Amino acid sequence: MTLDSKLVTLLDIDPHEVIIHKYGSSGFATTWRITTKLPSGEEAQVMFQGEHESLKVLRQCLPTLCPKSYGYGKLDDSSTRYFILTDFFDKSAQSSKEKDVYLVQKLAKLHTAPAPIPDGYTKRPFGFPCTTCCVETPQNNTCSSSWADFYANSRPRFIMKQSEKKNGPDTELSSMVETLCSNVVHGLLGDSHLNSGNAITPVLIHGNLWGGNTTWGKLPGMEVMEQIVFDSSACYAHSEFELGIMKMFGGFGREFMDEYHALVSKTEPVDEFDDRLALYELYHHLNHHAMFGGGYRSGAVSIMRMLIGKYSDS
C-alpha cells in the first residue's frame, strides 16, 4: 500500500521514507500504522534554538510568564537527535485566586514593559535575533526599523514563498499576497499613519499564543499555580500582532480582550483596529495553508479580498 498524497501533505513527509502496516481493528474503519523518519537534526536544532531564545527573553521581561529553558543542542549519545531542557510545571498544585496572576494581566505587562535590546543593536528592532518556528515553519526574522516593511517582507511575502515550495505555484494566491503587501500593508501599518504618525515601539510578543499554548501550572519558586505560556515564537513586533492568532484559534473571550484593552489601548486609528487584526490573522492562515493546504487557503483569500477591496488603490 502507498500513502495517499493527502496524508503525505498533511504530515509533511517523504513518501519514499514511509512504512505502512495494518494495525488494530475497528467495526467501521480500516486502521493502519505509519512509520516514517523524524524531522532532520538541522530542523530540530533550529526549532529548539528558537524556543530556547524565546523563553529566555520572555523570562527576562516577566519571570513568571513561562518555564525557564536551560539549554538545547545535540545529544551526546546520538548523532541525529536533539533536545531542549526546560522547567517542569506542576499542574496538580493549588490554583491562585489573585487577579494579578491571570494571563490577561501578564500579557498586558509583556506588551508594555521595556524589552531587552538584543546584543549588537543600539535599540530594539522589529524582528528577532534568530530564526523561530511558528508551529513547524522557520520564520524569517530579519530585523528592520520599519514595522510595515518587516511585516510585509518577513510574514506574508515570505510565507507565500514557503507555501509554493511545498504546495506548488498558486498564481491567484501569490498575486493577492503581492497586491496586499504593495497596496494595503503600508497604508494600514505605515510609520506616518499608524499611531498618529508616532513611531511604534517594538515590544516582545509570544508570537504563537492560542488557547493550546497556555495552561495553569506551578513553576519552581511559585507558591501556587498561575497561568503560564509555552511553545513560543518570540518576536519584537507591534503588540497587536499578538492578537491575530489569538482571534483565529480562540481560547480568549470578549471579557479577556476587554480587560486587555483596558490595560493596553488600541493603536490609533482605533477605527481600523479590526482590519489590522484581520491583516495579522491573515499570516497564520497563510502559514497553516503552507503547512497543511486545504481549507486554510479560503480563509486567507477571504481576508485579502476584504482588505484589498477596502484599502487598495488599484
Rank of each mutant, 00 (worst) to 15 (best):
P67Y: 02
K68D: 03
K68N: 05
K68P: 01
S69M: 05
S69Y: 07
S69H: 06
S69L: 04
S69G: 07
Y70A: 09
Y70H: 06
Y70V: 05
Y70L: 08
G71H: 07
G71E: 03
G71W: 09
G71F: 09
G71T: 05
G71I: 11
G71A: 11
Y72I: 05
Y72R: 05
Y72D: 03
Y72A: 04
G73N: 12
G73Q: 14
G73V: 15
K74H: 11
K74V: 15
L75G: 05
L75R: 09
L75K: 14
L75E: 06
L75A: 13
L75Q: 12
D76T: 14
D76V: 03
D76S: 14
D77V: 07
D77K: 07
D77A: 09
S78K: 13
S78F: 04
S78L: 05
S78Y: 05
S79Q: 13
S79W: 12
S79K: 13
S79P: 10
S79M: 14
S79T: 15
T80R: 09
T80K: 13
R81D: 01
R81S: 08
R81W: 01
R81M: 00
R81I: 02
Y82A: 04
Y82K: 02
F83D: 08
F83K: 03
F83I: 10
F83P: 02
F83H: 05
F83G: 01
I84N: 00
I84L: 04
I84K: 00
L85C: 07
L85H: 10
T86L: 06
T86I: 08
T86R: 04
T86V: 08
T86W: 01
D87K: 13
D87T: 13
D87Y: 03
D87G: 10
D87W: 06
D87H: 10
D87Q: 06
D87V: 10
D87C: 13
F88P: 07
F88W: 09
F88Y: 14
F88T: 02
F88V: 06
F88E: 01
F88S: 05
F89K: 05
F89D: 04
F89S: 14
D90I: 02
D90S: 01
D90L: 00
D90F: 02
K91N: 02
K91V: 12
S92F: 02
A93V: 00
A93N: 10
A93Y: 03
A93G: 12
A93S: 15
A93M: 11
Q94R: 15
Q94C: 00
Q94S: 11
S95K: 04
S95D: 04
S95C: 07
S95P: 00
S95I: 01
S95N: 02
S95G: 02
S95Y: 03
S96E: 10
S96P: 10
S96D: 08
S96T: 12
S96N: 13
K97L: 11
K97E: 09
K97Q: 11
E98V: 12
E98C: 15
E98L: 15
E98A: 14
K99P: 06
K99S: 13
D100S: 07
D100K: 06
D100T: 06
D100N: 11
D100E: 06
D100A: 01
V101F: 13
V101R: 12
Y102K: 13
Y102F: 11
L103E: 10
L103C: 14
L103P: 09
V104E: 08
V104K: 07
V104Q: 09
Q105D: 02
Q105F: 04
Q105T: 02
Q105C: 02
Q105Y: 05
